[in-house]
Computed example of a mutant assay.
Amino acid sequence: MRSPAPTDAELLAAHRAGDPSAFTELATRYQSRLWGLALRTLHHPEDAADAVQETLVAAYRRAGSYRGEASVRTWLHRILVNACIDRIRHDSRRSTVPLPERELPARHPDLATELVTRLSVDAALAALPVEQRLAVVLVDVQGWPVVEAAEMLEVPVGTVKSRCARGRARLAVLLGHLREEER
């Protein structure tokens, strides 16, 4: 009979005790979730990859400072949120180059509609203020409970709720054209 997989806290404790594979297992568990949050927050794959790498390096180095007040998952996501905020502040005036227009094959109309919708949603998320974007991505896109999102963002629960509400309202306006296209 296989023994159950170690918990996140057990892996972090093993890493602090010198187990060379413990942190790798922990990072493997959360890498795709961290990547998804970083990509939706930063909207640039290279920046998202850098933020995830910075997060994992910081967590590796600061494992001894983990106090256990929040789950390891929340702790990792909080480090990532900070890395994303730092990047956004640093690159607040990033110039963008529009993608060249090209026609998608006519035999996949659903794929084309899906792509347009995805690009529209990504652009609308990018238009939100960073605080609203982070709240909406954590709660509505990634499904985090509001309480845990508040811990990650280090703000009261009510602040997360109001940021989500404002962000959703703004997204409804920005994405209203998608509803009109369905008609």
Rank of each mutant, 00 (worst) to 15 (best):
A9N: 07
L115C: 02
W144A: 00
S32T: 15
E131T: 08
D86C: 08
R170I: 04
V155C: 01
L153M: 13
Y66W: 12
L80R: 02
H177F: 13
E103I: 11
P20V: 05
A63F: 00
L153S: 03
R87C: 08
M152D: 05
A38E: 02
E54P: 00
L178K: 01
R168G: 08
G36F: 09
A58F: 06
A106G: 09
A38P: 03
R183E: 11
R179N: 12
V57M: 05
T55D: 07
A124P: 05
L134K: 02
V137N: 02
T41R: 04
L42Y: 02
D19R: 12
T28W: 03
E103N: 07
S3D: 13
Q31W: 06
I88H: 15
A27R: 01
V141D: 06
C84D: 03
V52W: 00
T74A: 10
L174C: 09
V130A: 13
Q53A: 04
R166F: 09
I88M: 15
S120N: 10
R33T: 08
A165T: 15
A127P: 05
L171N: 04
R33G: 11
H43Y: 08
A165D: 14
L99K: 09
E131M: 05
S32P: 04
R62V: 00
R133G: 02
V57W: 05
R67L: 13
E151A: 12
A27T: 10
H43Q: 12
I85Q: 09
V173F: 15
Q142T: 00
H15V: 04
E182S: 13
P145I: 07
L178F: 06
H177L: 08
T113L: 15
L119C: 13
T159W: 01
V97I: 12
I79W: 02
D140H: 13
P20H: 06
E46D: 08
A169M: 09
V173W: 14
T113K: 15
